[in-house]
């Protein structure tokens, strides 16, 4: 039996919004330690990894490890039926091919029950090594979203350059070019408004902006975002999910032939 009750159901709605444009089908892995998911986009250029720890749920029970194959479009449709203030409970029997979703309004006067068919998925899982990065940049998530949106009007690629002076995002296209530079700003009143840069060596990498724009669907989950980069390896874009977990997006760079 698997059962997970989340009082702040809006978190699950936001997580789903952050995943659905990148991933069409994914295996949600349920273990006693929590829920996790790893999936690549259709072109295998990016990968998303979600962790929601068991202790972040008000109630969590998982007697046997389960891999729930979920069509993300269906999951989105059903989660849209939940109100933002609803408590969401997920339930599945060990051998069932269905996931039950229950939405309770805050005062308990309305309870909605949905059932979603699960799929048999044979997903390739990649081992993500724990590694140190040459640069880690923490910045307000809305600023990152804005930069990606703005520069995507200029060109298809963004060059991210991180030095001790700051981080620079630049794009070039037929109509011209654009550059946005963010400098370290430790004086901001709110922690989410701070820009912090930790660097051991400078990094410059080129990425397809369309993927970064898809990652920014997670903006509403967290006030800040962390970008981790080393030369010639995938960029990591991480959003915290309150104090219960994270969404990490990995994006393969474009590298000169």
């Amino acid at each position: 039996m698997f059962e997970a009750r989340l009082v702040q159901g809006s978190l699950l709605k936001k997580v789903q919004e952050a995943l659905k444009d990148i991933v069409q089908e994914a295996s949600w892995d349920c273990t006693s330690s929590g829920l996790s998911l790893q999936a690549m986009d259709g072109s295998h250029v990016s990968l998303v990894q979600l962790t929601l720890r068991a202790d972040g749920f008000e109630k969590y029970r998982c007697d046997r490890n389960l891999a729930m194959g979920i069509n993300m479009g269906s999951m989105s449709k059903i989660l849209k039926c939940a109100g933002n203030d609803d408590v969401i409970t997920l339930k599945a029997e060990d051998t069932s091919d269905r996931l039950e979703l229950m939405f309770e309004s805050p005062k308990g006067e309305k309870i909605s029950n949905y059932e979603m068919k699960l799929m048999d998925l044979d997903c390739e899982q990649l081992g993500i090594p724990d590694q140190e990065y040459s640069c880690s940049i923490k910045m307000p998530s809305h600023e990152f979203a804005r930069i990606c949106r703005d520069l995507s009007q200029i060109g298809e690629c963004v060059v991210i350059t991180c030095t001790k002076d700051g981080v620079q995002f630049s794009a070039k296209g037929d109509m011209g070019s654009g550059t946005v530079k963010m400098s370290q700003n430790l004086g901001a009143e709110k922690e989410d408004d701070q820009v912090t840069i930790e660097m051991t060596e400078p990094v410059q990498l080129t990425f397809a902006i369309k993927y970064l724009n898809m990652f920014t669907k997670a903006t509403s989950l967290s006030g800040s975002v962390c970008l981790s980069m080393s030369n010639d390896v995938p960029l990591v874009v991480e959003y915290k999910v309150e104090d219960m977990g994270h969404i990490k997006y990995f994006l393969a760079p474009k590298i000169e032939d």
């Binding site: 690549m40 072109s43 295998h44 250029v45 990016s46 990968l47 390739e124 899982q125 990649l126 081992g127 993500i128 090594p129 690629c157 080129t206 397809a208 390896v233 995938p234 990995f250 994006l251 393969a252 760079p253 474009k254 590298i255 000169e256 032939d257």
Partner: peptide, 14 residues
């Protein structure tokens, strides 16, 4: 010309 790498070329299959 920059070539788009695949993410799977950086991580090993489990």
């Amino acid at each position: 010309m920059n070539k788009q790498k695949k993410i799977s070329s950086f991580f090993e299959t489990k």
